[in-house]
């Protein structure tokens, strides 16, 4: 179950599972007990207040019945957990390249999800066989843009951390719209 709220404290304490405030802590415990009792998973996600206004929930309490989903728009159109930064705003990649490429002197590669596992780890080309006949990858450092959608950001970050430990001469740039922040 997804719960979208403009209260960032709710998101934070639900993800952490704890709070220094006794009252908030009790609320978290109640949420966790409900999850265990009814076997569901509650995902609390912080969104901007302006998004809630556009989506229409905010206006309902003020009697505005013709905004957002109330006017017929799809609820899913207001939930962008599956969209990368460049899908939402294409010019963001050119902006990042404008400063990360040393004024165009170096190439900046945008990684696809497949690339998180290969090029993001400096793999380059088709590789070659060593003297024992085993295939070995070849490596080339680069500047990489990782732009996972917020919904899968934690998987991309896991790969990025591994890539960083294994190959240490590349520059990595991670772009994520600020949604599902406890996961990142």
């Amino acid at each position: 179950m997804f719960l979208f709220t403009d209260n960032s404290v709710s998101e934070s304490i639900a993800a952490k599972g704890s709070s220094s405030s006794p009252k908030l802590y009790q609320l978290v415990v109640r949420l966790y007990r409900l999850e265990m009792k009814y076997l569901y998973k509650l995902e609390i996600i912080h969104v901007a207040g302006t998004r809630m206004i556009e989506q229409g929930t905010d206006g309902l309490s003020k009697g505005q019945m013709y905004e957002g989903v109330m006017s017929g728009s799809s609820m899913l159109s207001f939930i962008s957990l599956h969209l990368t930064a460049s899908k939402r705003s294409p010019q963001v990649i050119d902006w990042v390249k404008s400063w990360a490429s040393d004024d165009g002197k170096r190439s900046v590669e945008v990684l696809s999800p497949e690339g998180w596992f290969t090029r993001g780890r400096d793999h380059y080309g088709a590789g070659r066989r060593n003297i024992d006949g085993y295939w070995m990858p070849e490596y080339k450092a680069g500047i990489f843009i990782w732009e996972p959608p917020p919904g899968v950001a934690r998987f991309a970050i896991e790969q990025l951390r591994q890539a960083r430990m294994k190959r240490q001469h590349s520059t990595h740039l991670l772009l994520i719209p600020r949604l599902m922040t406890p996961e990142t």
């Binding site: 520059t171 991670l174 994520i176 600020r178």
Partner: peptide, 9 residues
Amino acid sequence: HEPLTVAVI
């Protein structure tokens, strides 16, 4: 609506 988080490594 929400800002864009950029991490540089």
